[in-house]
Simulated scan of single mutants.
Amino acid sequence: MADLFNKNAREAVEAMVQKPEFSKEALGEEYRKLEAEGFPDGDRIRFISALGNSGEIAYHYQLICKDWEEETQLFLENSFDCHGEEGLKFLWEKLRKMEEQEKRKRAFTAYLMAVCLSKLKHRTFYTSYCDCLAVFLTELLEKEGEAFLRSKLIIALGWVGSSKEIEVLIKQMHSDEDALCRAWSATSLMQMSFHRVNKAVLQEKIRAEFARAILEEKDAYACGLILESAQTIFGKKWITSSAIENIELEKIEKAKKSALRFLYTK
């Protein structure tokens, strides 16, 4: 109880600390200056920090959306977690109001919210927001037809999902029509062990499922990625990242045999 009190007290103090004053007008002026200069790295990084330390959550999100639309890869979202719970509330309200024609923006926003939550694991509001987002992501996954957007949702689910979502990712690992999405599903199952799911519980639930996925996967690169996730979950070393990236078929096949031997033997 004392630990909980101290944790809540710390969060209250954090919330009371005033952030530096960065007005929307000042941020807008700085953004236009950076745009004219081609967004030099040092100034861009400082600007990203200023966005996160401002109270201009809506404007920060507006610039992030502009970056997504123009594919300029400025990574303005890297400081959005600094907005804390207010930022999560903002993103959640945006997600709830988005229409089907905004599905790209919706997937990117859900992914951003998951990224923020992965950085806010120590906060008391973490679990409730993760639970809400996990349900939302699961619903989107069921109807998303574009592989790239589906991969964003799958990755996000690995960061915020609980044991309830293990079966969702197992299904995607086995039945997704896109090879990379099947591989990302395995990676997301691995990510669960670093976030909200006890590793022992995960190992018990996915052992046979990983064996089946490794045995049935026809795409060599995807199979390599699934092997890499499995070896991380079970603390083994069957294959190197370079062998996967270079699609070294002989090494992938050797790792596959070793993994199946282990996974089928309890």
Rank of each mutant, 00 (worst) to 15 (best):
25 E>V: 03
102 E>W: 04
147 A>Y: 06
111 Y>I: 01
239 I>H: 15
248 E>V: 10
249 L>A: 09
166 I>Y: 00
72 T>S: 10
221 Y>A: 02
134 A>H: 06
95 L>K: 05
81 D>E: 10
159 W>C: 07
244 I>W: 13
143 K>N: 15
211 A>R: 07
258 S>A: 11
171 K>F: 03
203 Q>E: 12
78 N>G: 06
72 T>F: 06
108 F>Q: 08
105 K>G: 11
200 A>E: 15
171 K>D: 07
196 R>K: 08
236 K>F: 01
204 E>K: 12
38 G>M: 08
126 Y>V: 03
108 F>H: 05
121 K>G: 12
139 E>F: 14
5 F>Y: 07
135 V>A: 14
195 H>Q: 11
254 K>A: 11
247 I>E: 12
166 I>M: 02
51 L>F: 01
199 K>E: 10
235 G>Q: 03
162 S>R: 09
253 E>M: 03
187 T>V: 13
129 Y>S: 01
50 A>D: 04
20 P>A: 00
259 A>F: 01
1 M>C: 07
178 D>V: 04
262 F>G: 14
256 K>P: 09
177 E>V: 12
127 T>M: 06
55 G>S: 11
106 R>F: 08
237 K>Q: 15
195 H>T: 06
102 E>Y: 02
161 G>K: 05
219 D>C: 04
38 G>H: 10
183 A>M: 06
145 G>C: 03
141 L>N: 13
217 E>W: 00
213 A>M: 00
48 I>W: 04
121 K>E: 15
231 Q>E: 12
120 L>D: 04
145 G>M: 04
156 A>E: 13
38 G>W: 09
169 L>C: 05
235 G>I: 04
88 L>C: 07
262 F>Y: 15
228 E>I: 14
158 G>A: 12
114 A>N: 00
144 E>R: 01
187 T>G: 08
127 T>C: 12
230 A>S: 07
173 M>F: 03
97 K>L: 15
133 L>F: 00
238 W>Y: 15
29 E>T: 14
87 G>P: 06
60 H>S: 09
213 A>E: 04
236 K>E: 11
3 D>I: 09
232 T>F: 15
23 S>L: 12
252 I>D: 10
168 V>Y: 07
171 K>A: 05
139 E>T: 09
22 F>G: 04
201 V>Q: 10
59 Y>P: 07
241 S>L: 15
117 L>W: 05
163 S>D: 09
251 K>A: 14
113 M>D: 02
49 S>W: 13
241 S>M: 14
250 E>H: 09
